[in-house]
């Protein structure tokens, strides 16, 4: 299986703080994999480096063959076929659900603003197709009928799903999900887990997630990297990770997750 994303020696410093320290991963095409780690480990910062929100202080990020994406702007990264969601939902909150998805489709629009002013046939056709696709995505994430709701009026779980729909709208090759189940109840989490699997199996998108819910992580990941203080302390299959003493220590040592069940129960 080929590698869709690999990071080499990625370092991100904030003044004296090294938030990401030579973090290296290789994401296999058409896989589901996770980055886990205690709070403040640097996971989100790592995602931000990949998606162009931050420029890594050092290191290389290679995407889809041999494209170097380190230091590109977020829009350029998206055009290459990467897409993401956010730990704290960041929808366009005053726009409707459909409009959010339409904005997500941005890179597939071809017509010019002049065509919009004159409402040319091409423009109308493109808008209609985009709307159709947006409604299809809305249904796909299970939000049919909620398209005209303003995003911030949607229930929490629906907002998380809408954010995924918006990310899918750009038809990415690789989808990065930052704690997609945060704030969901156990049932919703399980449902989302199945949804992520469907995404990979039916749509063929590679998924990389950051996740705290060990049930979800261990349940769907094929490969896991563990981060602590910006460094990679372990990698491997869920089974490897569950039995790795360093991982257990990192979680227990951080205090935040004492007594955490690393999903062995499943």
């Amino acid at each position: 299986m080929s590698i869709i994303l690999s990071t080499r020696n990625v370092i991100k410093r904030f003044g004296g703080l090294v938030a990401v320290n030579s973090f290296e991963i290789e994401v296999k095409e058409n896989s589901i994999s996770s980055v886990i780690g205690p709070n403040g480990a640097g996971k989100t910062t790592f995602f931000n480096c990949i998606t162009g929100f931050y420029t890594p202080t050092e290191g290389e990020i290679i995407f889809d063959g041999d494209h170097h994406i380190e230091g590109l702007r977020p829009d350029q990264v998206t055009l290459k076929g990467l897409s993401r969601t956010y730990q704290n939902i960041r929808l366009f909150s005053k726009m409707t659900a459909i409009e959010n998805i339409l904005v997500g489709q941005h890179k597939h629009f071809k017509t010019h603003w002049l065509e919009a002013i004159f409402k040319t046939k091409g423009f109308i056709k493109e808008e209609e197709e985009a709307l159709e696709e947006a409604i299809r995505l809305l249904n796909f994430v299970g939000l049919s009928g909620l398209g005209d709701q303003v995003a911030h009026n949607l229930p929490y779980g629906a907002q998380r799903r809408l954010e995924i729909a918006r990310a899918l709208a750009s038809k990415p090759k690789l989808l990065l999900l930052d704690e997609p189940t945060a704030g969901m109840n156990p049932n919703e989490s399980i449902e989302l887990m199945h949804f992520i699997r469907r995404l990979r199996d039916e749509v063929g998108i590679t998924v990389l997630l950051i996740e705290h819910d060990m049930k979800v992580v261990m349940g769907i990941s094929e490969e896991i990297w563990v981060m602590d203080f910006g460094q990679k302390i372990a990698e491997g299959t869920p089974h490897d990770i569950q039995t790795n003493p360093k991982v257990i220590e990192a979680y227990l040592g951080s205090g935040a997750a004492s007594g955490l069940n690393l999903g062995k129960g499943e």
Binding site: T51, R90, V103, G104, H106, K107, R166
Partner: peptide
């Protein structure tokens, strides 16, 4: 609404 996220949608 959100300049950063808008940029991440692929717009210049």
């Amino acid at each position: 609404e959100d300049e950063d996220v808008a940029e991440a949608m692929g717009m210049n």
